[in-house]
Computed example of a mutant assay.
Amino acid sequence: MLLLVVSIGLAVSIGSAGLSLSDVWGILIYKITGIHLFGDWSDSDVAIVMQIRLSRVILAVLVGACLATAGAGFQGVLRNPLADPYTLGVASGSSVGAAFIIFFGLQSLMGLWTIPLVAFVTGALTLFAVFALARSKGAMAVETLILAGVIIQSFLGAFVSFMVSMSEGVVNQILYWLMGSLALRSWDHVYMLLPFLIVGVPLIAFFAHRLNLFAFGERHAAHLGVNVERTKLIVLVGSTLLTAAAVSVSGVIGFVGLVVPHLLRLLVGPDYRRIIPLSAIGGGIFVLWADTVARIALSPREIQLGIVTALVGAPFFALLLYRHKLGGKGGM
């Protein structure tokens, strides 16, 4: 938590507007306490700090917390350390909705909320399609669930590719959304995402002990009194809604839900009672610094956030595979 608070403070202080550290913190202290301690700033400086930087920093923390918590939930239920928030095709579902809106020029249909709302709805509908495909006799086998997610993801991904190939003037808008970004976001997006985080993280954390039992197999967990199917359904729905909400405001940002729970598992062990809440904090820190790098690395131009997380996440993922390979050789 201390690292998160320090990261927020540093990220708000960094930017291309040329504001000094004393001005930034003078504005923050004045807005929080009403006391003007130091600094001499204009109304535009206040707007830059409060409306642009701070809202973006808070949104980055929320997006990272949602994706990392969802990743921990997916890995626990599917008993697969390589599962991530997009395993069940939610990203493809949200991408179809966003690409459809951009392709047909309907962004102004509901104002600022158009793309986020449509992306969230199509992402949630994707989940129910996967459940319908995977459910058999009231139960969902893990292998069938993953396979259904792969099928739906590939199918919807083809639609997105089709719209990208057919678009001309808006192809860049679609691609930018698919690569993920927090540019041009506001407090409205923070207010949209916050309720999902407030409800979703405690919900998944409530099932942390049951997820620990899942590690021994579903049959063993059932013998210990766990309602396996209900637990899987609630955790998967909660994780998917967190993912859909995050993707709807930021676009597709990869590797967060894969890397953060893995790293925490190495640091604090396999207990989901620790992994889930720490994933929320660690995910927020990871995306916050990734977005800060995206903002300032090539200033005044911005790098897409999804590119930065992939550049960091892919080498880490390769390291995990390498360690796993060494562990397998050692076991032999």
Rank of each mutant, 00 (worst) to 15 (best):
Y191S: 09
T231N: 06
A134I: 06
R135G: 05
T231P: 11
A215F: 08
A148W: 02
A208F: 12
T122C: 14
F131K: 10
L197G: 03
Q173F: 00
I204L: 13
A208C: 11
L193P: 07
F216G: 07
F206K: 09
I151D: 06
L147V: 06
A215M: 15
K137I: 13
I174T: 05
E143K: 12
V130P: 00
G225W: 04
S181W: 03
N172T: 05
F120K: 00
V171P: 02
F162Q: 04
A141V: 05
V190H: 03
M179I: 02
A221F: 15
M179R: 10
M163I: 02
E143P: 07
V190Y: 04
Y191F: 14
A139T: 15
A222T: 10
V150Y: 14
R219P: 07
Q173G: 01
A132F: 12
R230V: 15
I146W: 06
E168N: 01
W177C: 00
M140W: 01
T231M: 08
A141S: 08
Q153V: 10
E218M: 13
F155V: 11
R185Q: 11
V190T: 04
R230C: 14
R135H: 08
V190P: 02
F128L: 00
A129Q: 05
Y191C: 13
D188P: 08
L213M: 15
V164Y: 07
K137W: 08
S154E: 09
N212K: 07
S186P: 07
F196Y: 00
A205L: 01
A134D: 15
S136N: 15
A158Y: 11
E168T: 04
W177F: 02
A134S: 13
S167A: 05
L127V: 05
S136R: 14
S181A: 04
L156Y: 09
L182P: 11
I146L: 00
G138V: 10
F196C: 09
F216V: 15
S161I: 02
A222F: 09
N212H: 04
L211N: 01
V142Q: 13
A141N: 09
G157W: 06
V201T: 06
G169K: 05
V201Y: 02
V228Q: 00
L156E: 03
W187K: 12
V164P: 07
L211T: 00
N227I: 10
L127F: 11
T231D: 03
F207H: 09
K137M: 13
N227F: 01
F214P: 08
I151L: 06
